[in-house]
Design a protein around this nucleic acid. Structure first.
Lengths: 140, 140
DNA sequence: TATTGTTATACTCTATAACTATA
DNA sequence: TATAGTTATAGAGTATAACAATA
């Protein structure tokens, strides 16, 4: 039967929404294998080897409200993946633990595979345009 | 200061997520002026002049669970924008009312402007590649 | 004065299960 | 047997307000 969403098909905003929902659902399913959510993976990758990253800065970089960082980091800490290290008497660095670094390695492997496959699904003629086009829509 | 999200910057999946969240937040803010959510706008545009569209079919087309269609259509009905017309003793067509068609006209105007501006923000060299690239990521 | 971390809270969105009724 | 509509419910995800403590 004819596509019922034909009236929306020409809108890049619609395609952007549908593509993001579909791909994030797929990534979410893959990260479940290592007990991580998409947001957890982003935070772990962002921290990496650094020992100077505070929760507020992570929130600003990923557009997560400061108030929502507390339970997020708390969950990662409860899972033994990160620890809070005092920088001064006000700020706490969020640092990966040993198990956190092991988890990051697995998260990186899943993410790299996912991103490679995502890009491979884009026809070659359009492939190199995707990232710059998307970046123009939110980095500015 | 250096971008804290540098370790994520090369991932198209990350850019896709950020771009979708940013653009949908903008569209959401604009549609609030006519008391519509993004999902409402999509449903109104999808229905248009048709009188043969049932809630389940809308759900399949937009990837909304059947169970979540009931309150969604109920809300549009309470707002006087749609009515339910029996097709047979099992199915109900969701049809725009007079006020629904007026609202749709305003929604279309906002959406067209939004989509035009969205595309204008993409550098010309990449512009025509965006929709086909995105479509490849979820239509298949 | 601005920033950090935190708690509490409310709202939206979404997914699942279960039920009734009809094609 | 499959589909349509509905209700109830639980889990994410997110936004706001407020507070104490420190830069």
């Amino acid at each position: 039967m004819t596509d019922l969403d034909a009236p929306l098909a020409a809108y890049p905003g619609y395609a952007l929404r549908r593509a993001a929902i579909a791909t994030m659902a797929e990534l979410s399913a893959r990260l479940a294998a290592v007990d991580c959510r998409v947001i957890d993976a982003m935070v772990l990758i962002l921290i990496g080897d650094r020992t100077d990253v505070i929760a507020s800065a992570i929130g600003r970089a990923l557009d997560i409200q400061r108030a929502n960082m507390a339970p997020l980091i708390g969950r990662l800490e409860s899972a033994g993946l990160v620890e809070r290290r005092p920088i001064d008497r006000k700020s706490l660095a969020v640092v990966l633990t040993g198990p956190g670094r092991e988890r990051l390695a697995r998260v990186r492997a899943i993410t790299e595979t996912f991103e490679t496959e995502l890009l491979a699904r884009v026809p070659a003629a359009h492939r190199d345009h995707l990232l710059p086009a998307l970046d123009a829509l939110w980095r500015d």
